[in-house]
Amino acid sequence: MKKKYLLATTLVVVLAIAVTSLILWLKPDNPSTLSAHDVPFTTQSHAQQTTSLQDPVAVKISSPTEAAEGLSASLQDTELDCALEATSAGQLVLNVNIRRCFEYFLTQIGEKPLTAIDQQVKQYISQNLPDSAATQATDLWQRYLKYREAEGKLQNSGANTDPDHLQRVLNQLIQLRQQYFNPAELNALFGDEITYNQYTIDRLSILDNKALSAAQKAQQLKQRFAQLPQDLQKNLQDMSKLQDLRALTQQIRQKNGSKAELQQMREQLVGHEAAERLDQLDQSRASWQNRVQDYLSQRQSILNSNQAAEDKQQAITALRERQFSNEAERQRAVTYEHFKDQGTNISELLQ
């Protein structure tokens, strides 16, 4: 069975990516050569809708499943991720598929010399696009190679998650891209990626703003999310709310904030009904934590007693059956026993 090759990471997974992935993309590790491991984070949905300005009617010329000659072993038995398109007037359609196509071939670096990949891409373009679109695509490919080489020379400053630093890095990368691509090309190849990463940086800035209360941060995060294009909002909505809730909840708890402050933040971010459900979940979690801690305390008293080992075990088993109402809870309790016996801080595990 053929494996589906996905070069571009989807937005939903990306967000699971968050700051570390952003930094790794912004700052390639290899400063001197193109590398398959330097493939940057890409987004798809909005940019894929961008077509040529010359003709709004796009006609697909090449198929993403047709074969390309001389692929490296790592790309054998994969679907060709190279859906180049031309308009009815024979002009190249500008969208993120072009970048995906280029990066698909570039993953062969390490197995093929760059000169061989260059010829391979040019041959594929000439065979799958009409002459005018092929000329445009070949020119874009040559500039893309120069851009990727220049991108690889950007200095890697490490995992610095400071929003101001990330903003400078993003601005530097955008300026670099502007040297090689016109505005239409820049938007088609990198538009959604830039939009998403700018949102990520703005989100970090809001979370780091010590002048704002948690509720104010929640309000600004919600407003910033609403500024995203609709397709990105659809892809990111659930995960973005979850991340913001976790981050702001952690901030409130670290400073021993009140329950009222926590409730106000949640209502700003997810609404009253959802905030009430989260409060009920907190109560349920707190009840479980108290039961586990009480059980472990009583178990420790049994272990410290002068009873015979067999009697201790029977007493612990009876305690566990009294303390927990079903087998699933008892199994979880046994897991906590093991962690506690190994010296793990159970309070941290129960958070």
Rank of each mutant, 00 (worst) to 15 (best):
Q254W: 04
T335K: 11
S301T: 15
N182M: 12
L94Y: 14
D244A: 14
R224S: 12
E69C: 01
M1Q: 12
S284A: 05
L248G: 08
W141P: 12
Q220E: 10
V59R: 12
L22F: 00
K234I: 11
A315E: 07
I125W: 09
Q155R: 15
T50W: 03
P229G: 01
L173P: 07
S21T: 01
S72G: 01
L350F: 01
E85L: 10
G152N: 00
S301R: 15
A333G: 08
N304S: 07
L154F: 13
D231Y: 01
N345L: 00
T107A: 11
S74Q: 01
V59G: 00
I23A: 05
Y180T: 06
Y124N: 09
Q142E: 09
L228C: 00
F102C: 05
S325E: 09
K153W: 11
A68I: 08
L262M: 01
A18G: 11
A83Y: 14
Q167T: 14
D238Y: 08
T10L: 06
Q178K: 15
S301E: 15
L140H: 03
L349S: 11
R332F: 01
A67S: 12
N304F: 08
D118W: 13
Q172L: 15
D162T: 04
S284L: 10
N156Q: 04
L349P: 10
A215C: 07
N97W: 00
V57T: 08
T65V: 06
R224Y: 11
N182T: 03
I252G: 00
D55N: 05
L176E: 08
T335G: 10
T33D: 09
I125R: 03
K234V: 13
N290D: 10
K241N: 01
L166P: 14
R285W: 05
A286L: 03
Q216R: 05
S213T: 15
A247W: 06
W25Y: 10
L6N: 13
S88L: 02
R291V: 06
R320Q: 15
D118V: 04
N95G: 12
A89G: 06
N306T: 08
Q219M: 04
Q223H: 02
A309Y: 06
Q280R: 04
G152Q: 02
A226C: 04
R320T: 14
N156D: 14
L319F: 07
I206C: 07
E69R: 02
H338C: 06
V270R: 01
K340V: 07
Q179T: 13
S284F: 06
Q307D: 14
P130L: 08
L75M: 00
R203H: 04
N235G: 12
E103V: 09
Q251L: 07
K210Y: 12
L7F: 08
E321H: 14
D55L: 04
N290E: 09
R332W: 04
V334A: 15
A89V: 02
Q198N: 13
K340A: 00
R332N: 11
K146S: 15
